[in-house]
Write a protein that binds this DNA or RNA. Structure first.
Lengths: 197, 197
DNA sequence: GACGTTTTTCATCATGTGTTGAATTGTGCT
DNA sequence: AGCACAATTCAACACATGATGAAAAACGTC
């Protein structure tokens, strides 16, 4: 629980830095930014709090280090949009789920989502992510009125993410990605290209 | 910014208690539980922090006082389910939006949602709210496999709430409720009674 | 006008937190 | 062996926060 006893450099070659980062990632994903304390991260990694600061600097720095999402949304969405509007709902959803189900990526995304909802910093998503990165990409899949269709798509995907990964409501959390694609994909397709009043 | 100068009871009869409660409600809704400080609430109400504690006790007490949701979900859902499965998607959504759009209720709900997503206390929603209160009600609207249909409905409604009220993505946040009912209602209807793989 | 009551502030306390600088010890190089 | 360097801990500071108890001021009542 507490930090180890002896001072100075330890024998062996444990990659302490990686352990600290993993602990931070887990804590941010589970408890959000404010719920995470440097001391708790250090303790989880079996390390002194000062070491955390030594490696990663301030808490904000540690947070962005823990985010580290090795995925470019535009790049990953490229093949989805390249195949055209037919079946785009299913492809889009499948791609999204494959990213979120990746254990190397999920904690970072969870931490981001948790901390975005915590305070009112959601302006980032509202004014940045949706209109700037995902909006233009999806817009090319849409025939008319992208300014209303894209947010509708976003709402269903946000709901799925929150239900499946944040709240983990059963059986959504345990359902194989393909089942979700089969059930929710058509709805996304409807938002993208269906008749809309 | 800081509290007023002179000591003792103020002249006139301002309902300070209500002002403090309003300030707390606003802060909890905007910044969540952890993001809210007693001092900030007191300052927003133009009052000493000790007064907040005098009226409402501990911070937890203040939080539950600020929640104060004057609505019983079961009661409000009764007419929706009484009218049977036809058009239930639209009616359900209309009812939900009318509650969330009520300025007297919205801050409490927002505060609850914000704080639930902050840490991993989402177990309340997962094991309490959805299966115990909303689940049984919706289940009576559903022909088969309610255990998969109800969470799908929930996912779309959660997404709508987060997009419209928490993130406030345009134009969802400004769209009249009836427009949303017309556009998203059919999707809920599909989840409730449509063909599902 | 004296008195009890309510409202309000003041002055602190205890605690948890992020951060920092110095001290200590092991490792690798020459 | 000696030395620079990296890894690690210790001790402490500064600060924000929740909480408390007591004092002061206004009010209502008699």
């Amino acid at each position: 629980m507490t930090a180890r006893a002896s001072r100075g450099r330890r024998p062996g070659a444990p990659d302490t830095r990686a352990e600290v980062l993993a602990a931070a990632r887990a804590s941010f994903a589970e408890k959000g930014f404010r719920g995470t304390t440097i001391r708790a991260v250090a303790s989880a990694a079996g390390v002194d709090p000062a070491l955390v600061h030594h490696y990663f600097g301030t808490k904000d720095d540690l947070f962005v280090a823990a985010l580290e999402i090795p995925v470019d949304p535009r790049e990953i969405l490229a093949p989805v949009v390249a195949a055209g509007p037919d079946g785009a709902g299913e492809r889009l959803l499948r791609t999204f789920l494959s990213v979120w189900d990746d254990p190397a990526i999920q904690p970072g995304l969870l931490a981001l989502v948790r901390s975005l909802m915590a305070d009112d910093s959601a302006g980032l998503v509202r004014d940045g992510f949706i209109p700037v990165v995902v909006g233009p990409v999806l817009a090319s899949l849409v025939r008319d009125r992208p300014e209303v269709r894209v947010p509708l798509v976003a709402s269903q995907m946000i709901g799925l993410i929150v239900a499946r990964y944040v709240i983990a409501v059963p059986p959504l959390a345990q359902m194989p990605a393909e089942d979700l694609v089969a059930r929710v994909g058509p709805v996304l397709q409807h938002y993208l290209t269906g008749d809309l009043p």
